[in-house]
Amino acid sequence: MIGMNMEDYEIVLSARADGRLTAKDYINGLTTDFMELHGDRLYGDDRAVIGGIGLIQDIPVTVIGIEKGKNTQERIEHNFGSAGPEGYRKALRLMKQAEKFKRPVLCLVDTAGAFCGIEAEEHGQGRAIADNLYEMSTLKVPILSIVNGEGGSGGALALSHADRIWMLEDAYFSVVSPENCANILWKDTGKAADAARALSLTAQKLFKAGLIDKVVKSGDMKGLASDVYKELHSLMQKSTENLIDDRYRRFRKVGY
């Protein structure tokens, strides 16, 4: 596995690297008949978040992903994968729709963090993220979140209140970026590698700590597709009550 021998900070850099697969690639690789659905029905359509419906073999699913884009034009279009409140509200709208039609939700998480801006703040960035955590905690359908690149703090967490959290072996999930952490602690962004190690942010370490449920081998879309199918299938066997109780316990035990 890549994660075993790679320096933690190298993993962070590789999670951000050009040429990585983005949410769209995973949607193409994992689903058929995908159709994108736009807008939060409140204010706008945040292109940093793409969402829609499709099939994973015979299971209808709702898929929500944070898309970074692959070239300059796409990156600008998708705001470099930094979502504002409209993006998180679009995600929640689609999750509620999934609940109505009893189909599971697949989230693809890849963001440096929620967007920092005047509009994002005044439209309620904090409230939008909080709402997702709150509503996802009792959503009546299975939720599987896969961190396929960057798991940047609250902006990534807002799509990760899931029954299962999986991470690519060369992805990271962190409370703060290693650069910011080094800057705050040691006033030296050059110490980002030390911060990365201290933050315990790699898939391997988080798996060992019991905070995520699976480390996914990268570059094996077929294997991933079959694992996703099996997992959704098994989660769908649970009663709604068990599903929600287990999800509650999954997060309840963290840290104590």
Binding site: Y134, S137, F173, V175, L201, F251, G255
Partner: peptide
């Protein structure tokens, strides 16, 4: 920061308790 992902996930934990 000093508690890494464990502290981030407290957001999920508390929010779920507020919902209940």
């Amino acid at each position: 920061m000093q508690e890494g992902m464990i502290s981030l996930m407290q957001m999920s934990k508390v929010s779920a308790a507020v919902k209940r």
